[in-house]
Amino acid sequence: MTATNQRVLVVDDEAPIRRYLRAALGAQGFTVYESASGEEALQAVLSHRPDIIILDLGLPDIDGIEVTRRLREWSQTPIIILSVREAEQDKIAALDVGADDYLTKPFGTGELLARMRVALRKQVSAANEPVFQSSGLTVDFSRRLVIVNEREIQLTPTEYDLLKVLVTHAGKVITHHQLLRQVWGEGYNDMHILRVNISNLRGKLEPDPSRPTYIHTEPGVGYRLKV
């Protein structure tokens, strides 16, 4: 990991968690700023201009969803949400208002760094790459070609669109809602059709659909394309 002097803002009201993140992220070369409340965080974003924000959902003053919504009014700084398993709906809400990814407490440092890496990369490579390649899966957008382990796969237009959305956000979670909106259009809300298409897509891509290697399910939230 070679993060050179990037700035990260850690927002959590629990001092032990802030201390741990300061140590773990500091060791990785990040400059770490801390905020213990939502208001403080909004101020800190203005004054420190962080490259990425790690935001706890359960804050004492304004909750994390609201903080995300306010930040997204003027900033595209990547946000990674921290939440407990019980707050599933809050997590989805935060993702839907623009958070980039999430982690369920407790989490390992490696996991956090992987998420941060993906989120930061989006910033770095905003330009479209015509070919996506990752562990045996190749998607050539210009030719609409999908190749798994050197074998071309035939996809229906919907399956292809679905895969395209997943690939463009590779490594990041995409909520059911976001997938439906981007593939079928605004206002479409049929979980059934999404499940069926994901199942079919897996059937074509995955060697063993019971142990998927590409399309990972985030229970209750959405899907993630593994990189």
């Binding site: 599933e88 979980m191 059934h192 499940r195 069926v196 994901i198 199942s199 897996r202 659909p209 019971s210 142990r211 998927p212 990972h216 399910t217 229970p219 209750g220």
Partner: peptide
């Protein structure tokens, strides 16, 4: 309960993971 149509294969895969 947050009831949604669920894929049993997906269910087993996620559990195994």
């Amino acid at each position: 309960l947050n009831l949604e149509p669920g894929d049993v294969q997906d269910l087993i895969g996620t559990a195994l993971e």
